[in-house]
Structure formats: C-alpha cells, structure tokens
Design a protein around this nucleic acid. Structure first.
Lengths: 327, 327
DNA sequence: TTGTAGGCGTTATCAT
DNA sequence: ATGATAACGCCTACAA
C-alpha cells in the first residue's frame, strides 16, 4: 500500500492549512479561485481521498446504508430481491453511498441488526423490503428517528414514511386485460392466502379488470401458499369446476409454473424471473432497477444536510407485461 | 435516537477511567475481576457498543469486507451468486465483519472500486468471485498487499493466494456416473466454449467418468454460450448424429433447460437453481453456504492481529447430485 | 491494576 | 479568504 495521504499531506503540498483543504472539499465557494485550483491539483497529483471514518467522527455520517438480504425463501422469487439489490448498489454509488448487508429472518432480528449497525457502524439509513401488515420495523425506526425508505407500501398502516412500490394491481389488471383481448372469457387467479398485502393487491387488479369487462364470476380464484405442487393442485381443481377457466393470472412465476403443468390453459406469471424467460412464460415485470434508484433518491433526500421539509414521498411505479408463448 | 453512550459514559458509570473500560474490552486479563464485573455491568445497563469509526482511526481496521454483486448476466445462474452472498453475510456477522457491496462489469472497473473502498472506507479485505484466466484483480490486490480470498480457483495461474472452490469436475463426474448406473451408454455433454475455467473443469469430469467406464466416444459434446435457445439447438444437433446420446450432462441449469426441450433424453443440470427444482430437473448442487463460510474463515485468518504464517490455504468442496425426474 | 496524555484524520468554531 | 485550535471516540504508550 502506498504512503498514506491525508488532508495534511495535501495542505503542505499546496502550501495552505489543512482547514483550507477541507474548505475546498466542503465549502469551495469560501475559497479563492487561485487557491482552490492549487489545492485541487495537489489533490489530484497525490490521489487524495477523504477518510470517511475520520469524517464520520466529526459529522456523524458514514455514507453507508443498510439493506437486508434474504435467504432464498421461496426459490424462484429470490431473484427479485437480487435484482433490486443490484439496482440499489448501482444507484447508491454515484450518490456517494455504499450498501452494507445484513440478514434477518423476522422483524425483531432485523431490529437487533439496526441497533448493532447504528451503534457500531453508524449507518446513515436503511432501505427496507418485505413490508407487511403490522410491521414493527418501521415503528422502531421512526421512534428512533432513523432515516429509512421502504420498497413496498406500509400495508394497512397510514404512511408516515417515504416509500417506493410497484403497482401490483395494475400489473395484474394488465395481464388480465391481455388475456381478455386474446379472447378469453373465463380467467382465473392463483394467489396467496388473504392477508398478504402484495397478494391482495394483485388479486384486486385481476378482479377489477374482469369487472370492467363484465366477466367477473365466482369461484375463479384460488389461494395457496407459494409452491409448485400446491399451485398445480389448485389449478387442477379450477379446471374441474363446472365452467373451468381457459386462462389464469398468477401472483408469482412459481405459481404460474405449477399452473402450467396442470393442464392446457393460458398462464401469466408475475415478476418475470429468469425461469419465466427460460420456459416461455408470459409474466408481469417489475421495474426493479428504477424502484431501487427511487429508493436511493428518497433516502438521499432524507439524508441531505438540509432535508427537504414536507410530507413523506410516495412513488408508485408501473410494471409491464412481457408476453411470451404462454398467454 | 437515545443519548450517545461512549467509553467515557461507561467509565464514569463504573467509576473507573476510560482506559480501564478499554482494557476490559481489549485486554480483559489485565483487569481485576471485581473491576471487570463492574465495568461489564455498566456496559450492559448502558447498552454500550464500541464505535468502529473511532476504533478504526487507531487500529486501521474497519471490520468491513467487500464483495461484488453482479448484474444478472446469465439469467438463471444469477441465483448462485445470490446464495453465496447470503451465506457470506451470515458467516461474516458472527466473525465480526459486515459485507459491503460494489458493482463492476470488468476487472479494471473492479480495481477502481478497490481503490475507492480502501482509501475512503478502509475495507479490511475482499472476497472475489468469478475468477478467470488472466485475472488482473488478484495481481493488483497482491501487489498492494490487500488481504483477499477468492471463491474460485486462480485458473491458469499459480495460486499465491487463498481460495475456496467447488470441485466441478467431481460434480460432473458424479452426474455422469449416475446416468451410467441408470443404464445409459451414450452420454453427451453440453457446456461453454473452451477457455472458461469452470466450464473446462466440468467438461473434464464428464470425460473422465466416461473413460473410467470405457464409454468415451467422439462428437458427444457441444459448446455453446449460455442460452436457452442455443442449448436447444445444440442438443438437437446431438440427437441427429448417427449414434445419438440418450442422456446429457450440462454445465448449467440454463443449458439443461434448453436441452430438455430439444427432445426425449435424460438431462442433468448444474447449480441446482430454483428453476431446476421447479421443473424437476436433476442438478449438481454446490455447497454455497459452506463455500461462503470457508471464505470468511480464510479471510478472517488473514485479518487476524497475528496472521497465521504459512502458505495460502486452498479449500476444494464437493458438490452433490440432487436427483429429480429428469435423469 | 489503574490512570494520564496524546494522536488517528476530519471539520466546526473562532480568529486573523 | 485563510489559519489555529479543539473535538469527535477510541486505543497505545507510559506513568503511577
């Protein structure tokens, strides 16, 4: 490792005080042009970079944001978070932030991570995923005045914080309308048990599109916990009703893959996972890179020296349907 | 945020000097039992946690390690890195390290990240993935004396650093032997163009298993760049030879999925991605959590105050075959 | 065994 | 516009 170059190295090289170097970095308008140029060139030739640990001791800011990484709980779906994480890392860097990872399997374990990461590493803020009804994480963060943004609406709670989400209802409605346009009259829905914000949202979109078209009917939806086998079974049960659907909209690609093997019907999945692409499954794609970028934008806003006052920001992005052979 | 509790808070609470608190933390054997207990209880009641930024200024250690996160370059395969990343995060935490992410699309971009992360955040070390022939990253890191471990052998280079890898040749051989045991006499291989260390390794394993059984033959392997459609085409070409294979071992699940749609033959994939599980594809599974844990272990060893001297450590893990309907 | 003094690299405050 | 000084929280001498 080459010799350590600090603000003092730069200062002596440019024949100014350390403070002037600091001013060039943080409040350049206070420095005379000529001096600034001299310092800048010293910075460049020396390859100086501010030490964030030292800076943090003064400012309390680490330029580090925390994000949780999941175990791949539901197989196929894991790639959604993966893509989001990649987008987050990419968007954070130009904004001057780095992403620190932690794992947790439930809210309280995640809160324990917050405590550790805040006290030891002084993280500046967090991006939360997997919001759900009765989310205790947001309450804790708000209580302790920690900046954070959620990717996912605060389901069932009034939004007192900024969030970014993808309009799942709109996505499901788009998929449903696509099937209607293709001539389908009876279109089923395969989703998760009621109570999941994301799942209920997608279900609502399906229902609304059917109602718009005067095609709503009873007993066309099934709720199963995510799983290939269960999805297949549920779809068979749909297909053996008196008037079976000819197509089905699914709340996930995993469900859709199960549905597809159950018989001959049009199927549309959700999340456009790599598996969907590989097997020609039409699927609703979330703009994850955009969602991640928006999360960074909102969080960076919260972290600004002069935080923009005003109510929390909400961003609802539109997904789009990727049409393949399946429907 | 509750009131900040530093080493001084603890000291005054326990009625000792700051130094004694520091000793309790770093060199407990120097402190009398009674004093130590008093300090410990003060630490607990106050919820004190050492501030790593301050510690780092003295020790130069950040307890942060860097890992690259990829764009999902080849679709299906993305989940391999995802699982590795999860394992790394989980293994790092109990060892007292946190994972910082960065993105890069080539070696030189990655090296630029090293420079930034080392100078600004003082990362303690790196875990590299995607090792390849002529890898300039390891040379740079070694030159600058930065601790690092690679997940993946230093293909084509003499190993002057510690690494962890999974024995792809053994995995492919296991898959091949499984097919042989099932009665297959002509077994093909679908892989990537020559020159990829990982791909060539898997190819070698396939070949060896065939030779062992006296089943080796020419024109049974195909090399394509990863892609569902290409894999399908290549497999068809295999199936239209004079003496077509009845089974095929593939270097990835993506290739395997393509092979499967090409016709009626037994197929075994590689990496056991979620997609493989969903469609009943047999696949060779890498012990990624174990690999990640070993990477952390080796890197932590390099980072120890008293680094264990001796040659670099190499860990080669064995994958295992997950048998499903496909073969 | 415990305490005192100084400094890591930075920025805030206050002079000049 | 620039510089001197102190302080952030911690650890490493060294002194008591």
């Amino acid at each position: 490792m080459s010799v350590k170059v600090t603000i003092a190295t730069v200062a002596s090289h440019a024949k100014v005080s350390r403070q002037t170097v600091s001013n060039v970095l943080n409040t350049p308008h206070l420095v005379r042009d000529e001096t600034r140029a001299r310092v800048q060139s010293a910075i460049e030739t020396l390859g100086y970079r501010a030490n964030l640990a030292a800076r943090q001791m003064r400012t309390g800011r680490s330029r580090l944001i925390g994000v949780r990484i999941d175990p791949m709980r539901n197989g196929i779906e894991g790639s959604v978070l993966d893509r989001f994480l990649h987008g987050l890392t990419e968007a954070a860097a130009p904004a001057g932030y780095r992403v620190v990872l932690y794992t947790a399997t439930d809210d309280s374990a995640e809160i324990a991570n917050y405590e550790e990461l805040l006290a030891s590493y002084t993280l500046d803020g967090f991006v939360l995923t997997h919001t759900h009804h009765g989310d205790s994480r947001t309450a804790w963060l708000a209580l302790h005045d920690i900046p954070f943004v959620t990717f996912g609406r605060p389901w069932g709670a009034t939004a007192s914080h900024s969030w970014v989400d993808v309009d799942g209802a709109a996505g499901a409605a788009t998929a449903t309308r696509h099937l209607i346009a293709a001539g389908h009259k009876r279109i089923g829905f395969l989703g998760w048990p009621e109570g999941s914000g994301v799942g209920d949202d997608r279900h609502a979109g399906w229902l609304q599109a059917l109602e718009e078209a005067g095609l709503a009917s009873t007993n066309l939806d099934r709720r199963v916990v995510d799983g290939f086998a269960e999805a297949e079974r549920a779809t068979r049960s749909l297909l053996t009703t008196r008037r079976p659907p000819t197509a089905v909209v699914c709340a996930s690609d995993a469900l859709a893959m199960g549905a597809r093997t159950a018989g001959d019907l049009a199927v549309i999945g959700f999340d456009d996972t790599p598996a969907a692409a590989a097997i020609g499954l039409s699927s609703v794609r979330q703009p994850l890179a955009e969602a991640a970028a928006q999360c960074v934008r909102l969080l960076a806003g919260l972290l600004d020296e002069v935080p923009v006052p005003g109510p929390p920001d909400h961003v609802l992005l539109q997904p789009h349907l990727v049409v393949r052979q399946s429907g």
